[in-house]
Amino acid sequence: MGLLLARAVSFCRAVTTRPLVARLLMALFVAALLYPLTGLAMPVGPWRWDHEMGASTLAAVKVSLGLTTLALLIVIALGTPAAYYLARLSGLERAVFEGAIIVSVLMPPLALGLLLSLSFGPTSPLGAYLLRLGVATSNSPTSFVLTQVYVAMGYYVIAARAAFAAVPRELEMVAGLLGQRPLAVFARVTFPLARLGLAAAASIAWVRALGEFGAVIVTSYYPAGIPVRIWIDLQQAGLPAVMPLLLVFLVSALPLPWLIHMLAHRDGALDA
C-alpha cells in the first residue's frame, strides 16, 4: 500500500514536472497513430454474415491460424540456433551474415512473392522436381507456409539475436566452469535470461506471417488465408462483408503479441 502510494506520488510529480506541451503533443501523436482503429465503428451498413460467407470465413481463419502456427514453429526451430550463433559473432563474419539476413527483411513483400514463385514454382527446376515428388509449390499449403517462413524468418532472427546478445557471455562461461555442458548452459542460463526477448521475437514473426498479403497472394491465392479472403470478399461484396473477418483478423494478430511486448519491455529484455 505504501509502495503504491509512493508510486502514485512519483507519478504525479513526473506529470507536473515534465513540460506540459511536450506531453500533449506526445498524446496527440499516439492518438493519431491509433486513430485508424475507430474505423471499426464507422457506419458501413449492417455487417454481412450470411451462411456462405460464414463458411468461407471460417475456412480462412482455420487456414491462417493452422498454417501460420506451423510456419512459426519452423521459424523458431531454424531461426533460434541461427540467432544464437549470430549473437556470439563479431567482426567480418557477423557483418556478412547479418547483411544477408537484412536483405530478407528489407525485401518488398510483393517482390518476395514473385521471386518465390519464380524460384520455387513449378517452372523452376526445384519446383518441378518437388512436383514430381508430389509436393506442389504454388497455391498449396506448402507454398503458403513456405512464403510465411520466408517473410517472418529475418524479423525473428534479428530480434532473437538481440535477445541472446543481451545475455552476458561471461555468465555462460561461469556456468561452463561449474561443470555444465553447452546444452545445459543454454537451458539453465541463456534461455531463461533471453526468454522474454525470444517471445517478443516470436510474436513479431507471428504478426508478420499472419498478416502477410503481398507475398502470399502471389504464391498462394489458394488456400486463402485471412488477408487473401478479406481481399476477395472486398472485391466481390464490399466493406460490410469484410467487417467480421477484419475483427477476427485483429483479434488473432494483436492482443497476445502486444502483451508479450509489454512484458518484455518491462523486463528490459529489449533494451539491450
Binding site: 561471461e170 561461469v174 566452469l177 561443470g179 553447452p182
Partner: peptide
C-alpha cells in the same frame, strides 16, 4: 579443453551471479 572439463574455479572481478 572445454570449460565443463576444467576442474578449477574462477572468481572473476565481477560477481557474475545468475540473476534469474
Amino acid at each position: 579443453a572445454p570449460l565443463y572439463r576444467r576442474p578449477l574455479a574462477y572468481l572473476t572481478q565481477k560477481d557474475l551471479l545468475f540473476p534469474h
